[in-house]
Write a protein that binds this DNA or RNA. Structure first.
Lengths: 225, 225
DNA sequence: GATATAAATGAATGCCATTCATTTATTGGT
DNA sequence: ACCAATAAATGAATGGCATTCATTTATATC
């Protein structure tokens, strides 16, 4: 029937030698289109049909390059991991490096919380970007004087905290509004009110993140020999 | 002809014998059936159709009692919250109460991670069980000598950690297997190996949780006046 | 006993991921 | 320059899903 319509993707190398067709579709292009779609329509808007349309292709064509939608999510996750800033572990004191890493990590995944359920269960085996982050962080901990057996648990705990905080980060401002049940929860209601929550962006989410991170850094820092 | 909303707390609508059929639909029954279904088939098995079948009813009948599937998830969440053990805040030293609360909280939600995305964005306004937990925890913090403005951030941080750790808790044992990329991540690979991971139940997840919780408790405990 | 109303039904609707037989385009071998 | 092999794209299914709606059934009230 009709030839594959030359899609308006971000194609640059269409005619190549050695490959079947040097097609419009490859992992990089799919990842980019998925990210674009997520940024524009959110994760609800990320459907295989929408992704295919973005790429100017039939939905079924995607399955020549990815095994499933989860596969697409894994591609996106790897891409995001490569954007997490762990550079401080080479240049900054350990405490500052951890702080910078955690803030960057949370900032990125706060807008990608649907990925967290995927990541948490995902073996790291075929995720080079993720692995290289772990390698850099591990090196930073070693350099800071941590005993080897303590490093992974510390990283796991910090990551858990970062992921949990990422969820909080896009909670609505009135999440702690006790409404008409306020009378039955006087202490809690008063504690919420004492925050004067209108001021900054994501009170109390941001303050909470900072406080918890400080506690973790202080507690873990004491493990160095 | 129209049967608008399920109506909130009408008290006398169903105490007589001889209902439409064998169906007993109300929030409590729906919640129970949903939990049963989740325990048996997991969250993938929790569909409106399956839920209806469990209750011996047509799927559309559910919508006389709940507005959506998300509504069902909210019911389940409230039920789980009522099972979190925060009793220590009345009887134990603050540190022990926090530890008991956090372990109980994590243990329950580790098997209900799909709910976490729902909870995090959910206003607490119409969630009495959740509110009563917050009230008890807030009281415990006050009694322990925390300044009122610090309490909510502390709770938020602890909750974030608990939720993140709940995800970790059902990660596969080989999640940190670096596979054939091991050579490019020597420090990380060695750190993972140094754990000797076969021994306990969920190494390093459990150890990590314990370590991070200790750090948070120590850090926050210093805020008391 | 009539009637209003709450609740259950079954048949749509539309969206979704995924599969598959078929077609098209490109390549490497000769 | 042809031919066979192959990678990739297509459109039409498939089955599952949440949700809606007009209709029917059963209950409760007056």
């Amino acid at each position: 029937m009709p030839a594959p319509t030359p899609a308006s993707g971000e194609s640059k190398s269409r005619r190549r030698a050695g490959r079947p067709m040097a097609a419009i579709l490859d992992h990089a292009g799919i990842t980019l289109a998925a990210l674009e779609l997520i940024n524009k329509k959110g994760y609800d808007g990320l459907t295989m049909a929408a992704l295919a349309r973005t790429l100017g292709v039939a939905p079924s064509a995607l399955y020549n390059h990815v095994a499933s939608k989860d596969d697409v999510l894994r591609l996106v996750e790897e891409d995001l991991m490569s954007k997490v800033d762990f550079g401080g572990f080479r240049t900054l004191p350990w405490e500052d490096a951890v702080r910078q890493w955690a803030y960057s990590y949370r900032g990125i995944f706060a807008r990608h919380t649907p990925l967290i359920s995927v990541i948490a269960v995902l073996p790291v085996t075929d995720a080079p970007q993720t692995l290289s982050m772990y390698e850099a962080v591990t090196e930073g901990f070693l350099r800071a004087g941590f005993p080897e057996e303590q490093i992974i648990p510390c990283i796991v705990a910090l990551e858990a905290y970062v992921f949990g905080a990422a969820f909080d980060a896009n909670a609505p401002a009135d999440i702690f509004d006790s409404g008409r049940l306020a009378e039955s929860t006087p202490h809690f209601t008063s504690a919420v009110r004492s925050l004067g929550g209108e001021s900054k962006s994501n009170y109390p989410s941001d303050l909470a993140f900072s406080m918890g991170l400080d506690a973790l850094i202080a507690g873990f820092g004491a493990l160095r020999h």
